[in-house]
Nucleic acid binder design. Sequence first.
DNA 1: AAAATGTTCTTTGTATACAAAGCTTAGTGC
DNA 2: GCACTAAGCTTTGTATACAAAGAACATTTT
Lengths: 228, 228
Amino acid sequence: MEDLKLNMEAFLPLRDVVFHTLRDAILKGELEPGERLMEIHLANKLGVSRTPIREAIRMLEKEGLAVTIPRRGAQVARMTEKDLEDVLEIRDALDGLAVECACRRMTEETFDKLKDAMNAFLAAVESGDVRTIVEADESFHNVIYEAADNPKLGNIISNLKEQMYRFRYEYVKNDLDYTRLVEEHSQIMDGLKRQDVAYVKEIMHTHLDNQIEAVKELIRKQSEGSRS
Amino acid sequence: MEDLKLNMEAFLPLRDVVFHTLRDAILKGELEPGERLMEIHLANKLGVSRTPIREAIRMLEKEGLAVTIPRRGAQVARMTEKDLEDVLEIRDALDGLAVECACRRMTEETFDKLKDAMNAFLAAVESGDVRTIVEADESFHNVIYEAADNPKLGNIISNLKEQMYRFRYEYVKNDLDYTRLVEEHSQIMDGLKRQDVAYVKEIMHTHLDNQIEAVKELIRKQSEGSRS
DNA sequence: AAAATGTTCTTTGTATACAAAGCTTAGTGC
DNA sequence: GCACTAAGCTTTGTATACAAAGAACATTTT
């Protein structure tokens, strides 16, 4: 934990600002797994009192990013490879559901949005900039979640993604085969257009699967490092 | 909201006691959807200060049971029929996943536990007491979640169940056809034993499906009532 | 009578104070 | 030297105090 800073711009209750600040810090790895979240310490660091810190911690807890033991305080949640596998297993099922729902509920409008997202993705791949590609990829999938028209599903999936983000898995995407990604995306679009649920689920499954091994590989390397 | 009472027995931080108290009250309908959760009010009612109340509210929020608007306070989350459908859709997918995992990971021991749970369920049905039957049914499914060996999955499912509980859907179970339930349970066991993933998923799907319509029916009736 | 304004009351947001639990460490006895 | 105990320190748990936002209501103005 080096230099946490609050973003005071936002006109939100401090608990929310603190929550976002800490969450980002955890996801970026600035706060390491197992690291203690001491209230006074964080309060001083962020220039607020303990009250909003405590509320933020309760939120992090429920989000699965912190673990607290009564009378002993909170820690950044640790995550093992098994935990990651568990998360991926669930994501696989839920991404399947999302694309299935999207398939059944896709409207003209949302399909247009998807086309736009697809074009943006193609442009991003063209540009070659990894950051842009990753963002365009996210957008593409977000359109699908939106089309699935099940907000709770969207929330759960984004929470699961968040938990993966902690492994900085997007770095892996450097090594990804973009042509393949493009191909899969267009297959998904195709399936959605034809409303072929089985097909689209299948593609989505392999689409995710392709990334899993690489991520796991990365985890294994990472876990050789930090231990506390 | 009539008579909230804290259970001071448990040696837990007050925030947790308050959290459980409020959660139960919400699930039982003692705190109605849309009802304001006013801090001082609750604090007086429960005989604690605002601090643990606020922390409990932050937790309820993340659990989806309360919604807060900054500077305006928290309310018990409302739930529409659409929300319920969304939840059920997800549960269906995740129960499918759970049973699939269980199928692949079932050991001798856990299968024995399942047998026990099945026998308990049969005994419960024999007894005819609805409360007992519901509990035995829960236990049976809990063994499966356990066997799935994916704790995060278990958490998500229990959160989803919680959200359904608010509709007091278990009352519906009065009308359920227990012979059918028993039949389905034994089919699930059979499938698990044979490790027939496809079969077991299919059964689990219909198992859930059978309950959905009845629940929705109930919701429709309920929603004619309370409005605020 | 309706709209606008101002005043008061209520309620949330945040900080702080104090109590009690748990750790640490130094000291004591064996 | 090792185990045990006691004192002090650190940190969490809870209550309370105060500030400021928002709601409600009355008053004025048109």
